[in-house]
């Protein structure tokens, strides 16, 4: 009995604290406290800031255009999911492709690439250090690796997750298994219905 008491007490303090905090922060619980946040990137259409899209649900994907398989599969699945949305739903969505390969992906190339997947998708990038810090804030991972016995030059190991930012700019969902259209669609619809 005594052994149980401490963890229980800690749990109650934690629960009470979390409850108080959720009441304090306008009744909305943050799913990923301390993660996400604003950023500014460059695109063919000029600077793009997350702030520009308040009132919209922003879908972020980190990748690079010479990625032959993982990125096109994920973006293809995302595109197919977006095509299933009604015009009204689509009006509330902003897809954003963030290149982690600024050395090879210039703004024009990023625009062409993003539009290939969806006319509304914006392709943007920044300096490497900025991208590293940004990826870290969102929990994304990427690393450039020299590949031996290959004419690739280098590849970029990266996580393949779609980050969902709600209409207030808060990171609210992460869609793993991003190759599944159905899964992406379910997640997008859930976020659209929970937000007023």
């Amino acid at each position: 009995m005594k052994r149980l008491a401490w963890p229980l007490l800690v749990f109650f303090i934690y629960a009470a604290g979390a409850h108080a905090w959720s009441l304090f922060s306008s009744g909305k619980e943050e799913r990923y406290p301390g993660m996400g946040g604003d950023f500014t990137l460059r695109s063919a259409g000029g600077d793009v800031s997350l702030k520009d899209f308040r009132g919209k649900v922003v879908l972020l994907y980190f990748g690079y255009t010479s990625c032959p398989d993982v990125c096109p599969t994920s973006l293809g699945a995302l595109s197919a999911a977006l095509k299933k949305l009604s015009p009204d739903e689509m009006a509330q969505i902003q897809p954003l492709f963030i290149s982690v390969d600024p050395a090879r992906d210039n703004a024009k190339r990023l625009q062409e690439y993003s539009h290939y997947f969806h006319p509304k998708m914006i392709g943007a990038t920044a300096d490497l250090d900025y991208l590293k810090a940004l990826a870290k804030r969102y929990g994304a991972y990427f690393r450039k690796v020299e590949v031996e016995n290959s004419s690739l030059g280098y590849a970029i190991d990266h996580s393949s997750t779609i980050y969902v930012v709600d209409k207030d700019g808060t990171l609210t969902d992460m869609i793993q298994h991003s190759g599944s259209t159905k899964r992406i669609l379910n997640h997008i619809r859930a976020v659209l219905t929970e937000a007023p």
Partner: peptide, 27 residues
Amino acid sequence: GVMRMRPVEDIPVAAGATTTLQPGGLH
């Protein structure tokens, strides 16, 4: 969850078996 693309020397196909090259894996 981190996808690391790497070259392989060969792709084996065991007797009577099927090896599939597909998105997210061998290609």
